[in-house]
Each structure stands twice: as structure tokens, then as C-alpha cells.
Amino acid sequence: MARVLIVDDSSAVRAYHASILLGQGHQVDLADNGYEGLEKFCAVDYDLVLVDINMPRMHGYDLVREIRKNERGKKVGIVVVSTEAGSNDRFQAYKAGADLYLVKPVRPEELERVCVMFSRAKGGSNHDGGA
């Protein structure tokens, strides 16, 4: 089981991703903007963070950069999930520190594969922190 933070300004997308991950037995926390996402990230030990790009105030690239500056952020899996499908967007996401780039809409099996991959990569974390 992975602990996942979903940062997306669309409530429907947050709910869609959360319903998939909860249905697969993962723990999920939600944030609707970059600032809230960063605050939650600093409080909890996550296996994976799903980050949207186009959000008001703090966009996804800045959030990824801020997470990577954090000591805990050096190990966490960061997956950018965006409608932006251009190569420049991928380049910017990887340059900011993302591990993977997925184009919306994501299929449930794709999200599950990513969760398994990053929870294994982290060596199975214990999730004592609370959101």
C-alpha cells in the first residue's frame, strides 16, 4: 500500500484519481493548489505525489521544485499528470525534478502500476504521519 498526495485544482480529477487509488487500497490525501500541496507534503511521509501543472498561484513545476528542495522530497516519487502533452512540457517537468510524466486522462491500471513502482522504489514506507 502506498501513501499518495494528489495535487490538482480540478475537484473532479482529484476525486477520479482518489477513487482509483482508494479502491486499490492506497492511502490518499488531497490538495487543490501548490501551496496546500507543499504544506501537506512537509507534514507527511508520502511514497508518491501526483502533480497537475496548470494551477492558479503555484503551478506544478514550481511545486515539484519546492518538494525536491525538501530533504524528504529527495526520495519521494513525483508524477506530473497533466493535459499538456507537448515535449516542452515533459522537458520542463523532468527538469524540475519529476520522475514520470503522464497525460490526462489516466487509466486506473496505469495509476496502479505507478503506485506499485514508487512504493517499491522507496522500499515500503511506514505511514505514521497524519494529514
Binding site: N54, R57, D62
Partner: peptide, 11 residues
Amino acid sequence: EDASLRSMAFE
């Protein structure tokens, strides 16, 4: 191409 500008415009 600048995500900061897009986000500002959007908001």
C-alpha cells in the same frame, strides 16, 4: 510556454 504566465492568466 511559461507556466507562471499561464497560471496567472488562468487565475
